[in-house]
Design a protein around this nucleic acid. Structure first.
Lengths: 153, 153
DNA sequence: CACATTTAGTTGCGCTCGCAACCGTCCCCG
DNA sequence: CGGGGACGGTTGCGAGCGCAACTAAATGTG
């Protein structure tokens, strides 16, 4: 029923790329959530902030928002929660007193160093079901679509 | 910064497949929303219900939930809203009086017949930035990953 | 046949999100 | 140098969501 090929008049969601992409992304997120959620008690915004801050020495909330494409309020709240758990620290910026420099705390760095290999492993597990050629083909498609939709970074 | 290749200790989100997949899916959804939202005043759950019901003569809420992978409460509310707009109708099922048969109303069918070609056109526009080989490579990747994550339908 | 379990669908509730408004700071231009 | 707009970040609020609990109907079991 669902997977049946669509005719001109009909559209089966199971055959519709935007829907399939959403479903796939949700499935992959769920797959990944097992590591950052169950093992470290992070939700998605928090995980993304951790990942972004951990890759920089220090950065601002707006940088995180731009990198992760999350709304600035979502970032703001995630940062507040991470600060409450003492995973990150904020210091007033000398140059611009509106912004605050966010960086990982000691325990934040420890979590980050555990988190990253596990996340990587999940990604690898995921992609392991594709042959090298399939993988590059898939990634090429993503890349071109990203450019087409101007999501590049 | 963001796109910089990751080392063993570091993970750049812009280089991390699960994140890129989420971002891509969100971008594609946004692209598609222009048709179902701005032109027809539907939100995502409503659009998915319309698409599912329109492809069947009649179906139940639970069938819609399974097809769209939406939570049954989300489906229930979307159906209620569409019924309030008189785009769909519900009739008690003779065989099982717990369930109700959902089908498109006359105006629902009219909307559906306008909606489907536009959605298809959006999908085609999107995929038009890929060469035929890239397209099949990309779709193959999606398909295998769907099977791997058991999202097939 | 009675009772327990399962299933279809709805609803109350708490949580998260994005929008808009806001505060404080910076910066440009007259 | 003074004022207006732009910008970084936070917060109040309404909308949408999933969970859990519920109703009603079907099904299974002794």
């Amino acid at each position: 029923m669902i997977g049946r090929p669509t005719t001109e008049q009909t559209l089966a969601l199971g055959d519709f790329v935007p829907f399939r992409l959403n479903r796939l992304a949700a499935g992959v997120s769920l797959h990944l959530a097992e590591v950052y959620q169950h093992r470290f008690g992070l939700d998605i915004p928090q995980w993304r902030v951790m990942a972004t801050v951990g890759a920089e020495q220090a950065c601002t909330a707006q940088f995180i928002a731009a990198s992760t494409r999350m709304h600035k309020t979502r970032v703001s709240r995630a940062i507040a929660q991470l600060e409450a758990r003492e995973l990150i620290e904020r210091a007033a910026s000398a140059a611009d007193r509106r912004q605050r420099q966010v960086r990982l705390s000691r325990s934040g760095r420890r979590m980050y160093s555990e988190l990253v290999p596990l996340a990587r492993a999940r990604e690898a597990t995921l992609l392991s079901c594709l042959t090298p050629e399939q993988r590059t083909g898939f990634l090429t498609g993503i890349e071109i679509l990203e450019r087409f939709l101007q999501l590049e970074n």
